[in-house]
Design a protein around this nucleic acid. Structure first.
Length: 255
DNA sequence: ATGGCAGGAAGCTCCTGA
């Protein structure tokens, strides 16, 4: 079973990239973030024609998540239960016996921002809910754009990022707390290339200069982590014409 | 030099992202 996460930064703009990638990589399930479209205009027919069932939760301009799966999506949950939030950032579904959670964690903007407080509050509610989900679904994966670089090796220039959002101690502690529920940051279970990132700024030729961050992650529950064969970043997707600023992360499971 | 690029909605400029 091959599962993936990709922040597409507008599904309208990236649909052709997505469909070509599905045909080439043939993942069993894909979590998308930043679809930036309302449900009424979601391109479900094109995705179904590619062989996937799809669940989606979107809004205009910002946010928006979707889960695609060849085997179909069951028991879909939209949002964090009990946490009132108009922003469409979370979708959960069961695919082939595995509970998948697709998450688009708030960016936070800056440490002084109300959006940073929202990010930490959101992460608290998310972690509490994920803990309860894990107790019901031992085989679970939490995939998405976490907007957190867990360690300095996930940052192209750690000194330049000190004091910035995405690398703060509180955010990293929140990521650790999530993992401590019983998850592995699957990417680090395997040897990886130096300077492995999943996001590169559109500006300043950041991609070509390998100036990125690793902020998109696939967390695997401990029982699922033992079945993981490989995890990689599909860097080639960032090198396409008119790319998303994020590259997909792909995990292969022995399932 | 706090810029740089991209997407969306609005509408000829702004907000947001990370």
């Amino acid at each position: 079973m091959k599962i993936a996460t990709w922040n597409v930064n507008s599904l309208k703009v990236r649909l052709d990239h997505l469909l070509a990638w599905l045909e080439k990589e043939r993942p069993d399930a894909v979590c998308l973030q930043e679809t930036k479209m309302e449900n009424a205009v979601f391109p479900a027919a094109a995705i179904e024609a590619a062989g996937y069932q799809v669940a989606f939760s979107g809004q205009k301009t910002y946010n928006g998540v979707a889960i695609l799966a060849r085997a179909g999506v069951a028991d879909v949950v939209d949002g964090i239960p009990g946490y009132a939030d108009e922003q469409k950032r979370v979708l959960a579904a069961t695919v082939g016996g595995v509970r998948l959670v697709c998450a688009y964690v708030p960016n936070g903007q800056s440490l002084e921002s109300d959006k940073y407080r929202y990010k930490l509050d959101w992460l608290g509610a998310f972690t509490a809910w994920i803990g309860s989900e894990l107790s019901r679904h031992p085989q679970m994966a939490v995939l998405g754009d976490y907007n957190i670089a867990p360690a300095d090796e996930d940052v192209h220039d750690p000194a330049a990022w000190v004091g910035q959002v995405l690398v703060s101690e509180a955010e990293r502690n929140a990521f650790s707390a999530l993992c401590s529920l019983g998850f592995k940051d699957s990417f680090r279970m395997f040897p990886q290339p130096e300077r492995s990132f999943t996001w590169w700024d559109y500006r300043m030729n950041a991609f070509r200069r390998k100036m990125g961050l690793r902020i998109d992650h696939i967390l695997l529950s401990d029982s699922l982590a033992g079945k993981c064969r490989s995890v990689s970043v599909d860097v080639a997707m960032r090198a396409l014409e008119r790319p998303s600023d994020h590259a997909p992360v792909v995990a292969e499971l022995d399932l």
